[in-house]
């Protein structure tokens, strides 16, 4: 079980080595994204006195928040949903059913390998470029930094499981291109990648407390900034871990049902 998972991870790692151009354009894309939000936030704070805080964030905090959000995105990102949609379209799911492995194991394994690859080769350079170009602050302390690292790993799990669930819809509807792009924007907004939850209207902030999305970008960045300490820090990590566990159970349940449906109805 675990052996197969690490084998998939190895394969995912190797698979990415094949694409060098994507690597270079990736660094550029991420730098541009951070630039855009950096200048937007600078414009927002332009007429305020230096040191002004909006909704509890100074400009320097926001720059750090946005930069960290993109830096960890370069690690946790994957295309599991698209890959499943492609498998369904090509009728390749049969191949997975005819093997002693589950699609969930295969997909999360491959994605984990890709993420480790990106962490080693991609996240590093992006971090350096972003820290050189923009005034990004350091972590609030060693505990905050450790919590941030653990949180980023949980971001990977939540993002991967959400993508897997979106991919599962492909079995029912054939084409999920629309759903994938809807999910993309939902996550971009509700994960807190664009701005901290504090900037949301009250009702949306309240709603996001009951959704898994904010744990993808907001929780790790907030931990880095030291917005939660002591029991609160553990509480934030615990909530994130709980969501990862809930989504994992949901993925397993959905895949199990999908297998039964495929096997009984014949795809």
């Amino acid at each position: 079980m675990i052996r197969a998972l690490t084998a998939f991870a190895r394969a995912g790692f190797l698979r990415l080595v094949a694409y060098r151009l994507r690597y270079v354009t990736g660094i550029l894309t991420y730098t541009i994204n951070v630039s855009v939000y950096y200048f937007i936030w600078r414009a927002v704070y332009a007429h305020a006195a230096p040191g002004t805080e909006l909704r509890g964030y100074a400009l320097s905090d926001l720059v750090t928040y946005v930069a960290l959000g993109w830096i960890i995105r370069s690690f946790y990102f994957n295309n599991i949903d698209r890959e499943i949609a492609a498998l369904v379209e090509e009728g390749q799911v049969t191949t997975y059913l005819a093997r002693p492995t589950s699609l969930l194991q295969a997909m999360t394994g491959l994605a984990a390998g890709e993420s480790l690859f990106r962490l080693a080769t991609f996240t590093g350079p992006i971090t350096i470029v972003i820290f050189l170009l923009f005034p990004v602050g350091g972590p609030a302390g060693p505990a905050a930094f450790a919590a941030f690292l653990a949180s980023a790993v949980l971001s990977f799990a939540i993002f991967a499981y959400l993508n897997f669930l979106v991919g599962m819809v492909a079995f029912a509807t054939r084409s999920i291109a629309g759903l994938i792009s809807a999910k993309h924007y939902t996550i971009q907004l509700l994960s807190g990648l664009l701005m901290p939850m504090a900037f949301f209207p009250d009702w949306l902030r309240l709603a996001s407390d009951f959704l898994p999305f904010r744990h993808i970008a907001h929780t790790p960045a907030a931990l880095y900034l030291g917005r939660a300490a002591g029991p609160e820090l553990l509480g934030a990590l615990g909530q994130q871990a709980l969501w990862a566990a809930i989504l994992l159970v949901a993925c397993r349940w959905t895949w199990g049902r999908m297998v039964r449906r495929l096997v009984i109805q014949g795809g």
Binding site: A7, F8, R10, A11, L14, R15, A18, T95, R99, P100
Partner: peptide
Amino acid sequence: QLWWDLAVIESFTLLGKIY
């Protein structure tokens, strides 16, 4: 049943682990 972007031997290794 092989992985498109992987060298053949890597697909074999992976299948070996799966089985």
